[in-house]
Computed example of a mutant assay.
Amino acid sequence: MIYFEDCTVGAETLFGHYDVTRDEVLEFARKYDPQPFHLSDEAAAKTHFGRLAASGWHTCAMTMAVIARHVVDTEQAGLGSPGIDELRWLRPVYPGDRLTVRGKVVESIPSRSKPTIGVIRSENTVTNQDDVPVMRFTSIVMMLRRPEAA
């Protein structure tokens, strides 16, 4: 199990990858962000995107899928998140892109009021297959502290 104490400032994590598909871009856009440049090649061609582009919110959802799988696979003592800071969409994400998600711990704060919990702040970067950053954000995650030895 990975606890709060295991997440030291400066530690870097490769969370994994996500392959963006046209069908998912269209499905997400129809349900949650039905702007023309997320739904139509023709409409997108008339914009600065130049072609069908994923919603920024879809990029967030794909990123969360990668992070959540990593958290489950590595059995982390995570307790959820009160939010994120400084979310920035830097470049468009297109069908056919391969996203890679990485994080770096920048702050580790033990709770004063709840001694069994700590908060980790991480700077996270999502890049495409050309290693070009497409999204950045700072995550705030609550984690259990390591139980004292019996």
Rank of each mutant, 00 (worst) to 15 (best):
F137T: 06
R22Y: 00
L87G: 02
A65W: 09
I67D: 00
H48Q: 15
F37S: 00
G78D: 00
A44T: 07
P115C: 07
H38C: 03
T59E: 00
E107M: 13
V66D: 01
T63W: 06
D6P: 01
A54N: 09
V20S: 01
D41Q: 11
I84R: 07
F4D: 01
R51L: 12
I67P: 02
P36S: 05
R88P: 03
R30W: 08
S81E: 01
M143K: 13
R30N: 09
R88N: 09
R102T: 14
R98L: 07
F28W: 13
V105Q: 03
F137I: 08
L99V: 10
A53K: 12
Q35A: 07
W89L: 13
E5H: 07
E107C: 12
F137H: 14
E27S: 13
S139E: 03
L144R: 15
A150T: 15
T47D: 08
G56I: 05
E86L: 12
N128Y: 07
R69Q: 12
T74P: 00
T63D: 03
E86K: 15
G80W: 06
W57D: 04
A44V: 08
F37M: 03
V71S: 08
P92E: 00
L144A: 12
F15K: 01
C7G: 04
G10C: 04
S122T: 07
H70C: 02
E5L: 03
V66H: 08
